[in-house]
């Protein structure tokens, strides 16, 4: 049973980490927490469901179409939810705007795709058995694809010039514009990448949890992972999310009904003991 708990914990942790990546990107680009991120994740699942089941695209074409769609959604989201409010004297205005967007997205999805949870076929419909434990093969895809995307984001931000541009825009948009950085392009790029990561997460999670409006609830755990790992740190988010997944999974040994209370209890504890999170200090030094 311990092995089962470990497998479930790691798998769910990686899924949360994939969501967290998209969130961190937006935080780094515009310094705002996107509360509609869970709904963008859900939207990704619905878009890929339509491309696969309604347009009947083969996998390669579906992936291309999916990326194009996600980029359009990312841009639309940025220009409707963030851009008009970017100069507001209160930063919280954009946060409230993302909260509103989360409700609007949820209801829009219900109007477009109706209310019945939809079935999405996994890439390989198999379960592998490791001793007494079982693991859906879809989780292996989640771990591999999430890992690859996380590495991509890490290198993009830490090792590339484009990443530095994005970070510079996030830290001081005015100064970045003064030295010739086109902030609108940098921010738009970040929103597109963020949406792609959420959308891919939704696509990967859908066969395991159905395509439904409640898919967005996973974002709560991703938020918790980001805080545990250290707000704003990519490495921290991954470690934090995997930790959240494991805590959530192993909490069943203590309580079956209140495992969310255990997860968020640990979150509060981390904030009391180490308010900056596990990797928080390093970020402060870098900033």
């Amino acid at each position: 049973m311990v092995l089962q708990l470990f497998i479930t914990g790691i798998s769910m942790g990686m899924l949360y980490a994939l969501m967290a990546m998209g969130l961190i990107l937006i935080v780094k680009a515009v310094g705002v927490l996107n509360f509609a991120h869970g709904q963008l994740f859900m939207l990704g699942a619905y878009i890929t469901w339509s491309l696969t089941n309604q347009l009947k695209l083969p996998l390669w074409a579906m992936i291309i179409a999916m990326i194009v769609c996600f980029c359009i959604v990312g841009l639309s989201f940025m220009f409707t939810v963030y851009w008009p409010l970017r100069n507001s004297p209160w930063k919280v205005t954009v946060v409230i705007s993302t909260l509103g967007a989360s409700i609007a997205l949820k209801e829009a999805v219900r109007l477009i795709w109706s209310f019945i949870p939809l079935l999405s076929k996994p890439l390989i419909d198999k379960v592998i058995r490791i001793g007494d434990a079982v693991m859906n093969v879809q989780y292996i895809f989640i771990i591999i694809i999430s890992g690859a995307l996380m590495l991509f984001v890490y290198f993009l931000f830490e090792k590339t010039f484009i990443g530095k541009i994005m970070q510079a825009t996030a830290q001081n948009r005015y100064a970045a514009e003064l030295i010739g950085i086109p902030s609108v392009v940098a921010i738009a790029g970040t929103y597109m990448i963020s949406m792609c990561m959420s959308g891919v997460g939704g696509w990967l999670a859908a066969p395991l949890f159905l395509v439904s409006q409640s898919l967005g609830t996973f974002a709560q755990k991703a938020f918790a992972g980001i805080v545990v790992g250290g707000f704003g740190s990519i490495k921290g988010a991954v470690v934090g999310c995997v930790l959240v997944g494991l805590i959530e999974s192993f909490s069943i040994l203590i309580t079956d009904a209140y495992k969310d209370a255990v997860v968020f209890g640990v979150l509060i504890l981390v904030l009391i003991i180490r308010p900056t999170g596990i990797f928080g200090e390093k970020i402060e030094e870098k900033a």
Binding site: Q4, L5, T8, M12, L208, F209, S214, D256
Partner: peptide, 11 residues
């Protein structure tokens, strides 16, 4: 008793 809004039942 499972958690509110639960989606992962493997455990």
């Amino acid at each position: 008793q499972f958690s509110e809004g639960e989606k992962q039942f493997a455990n």
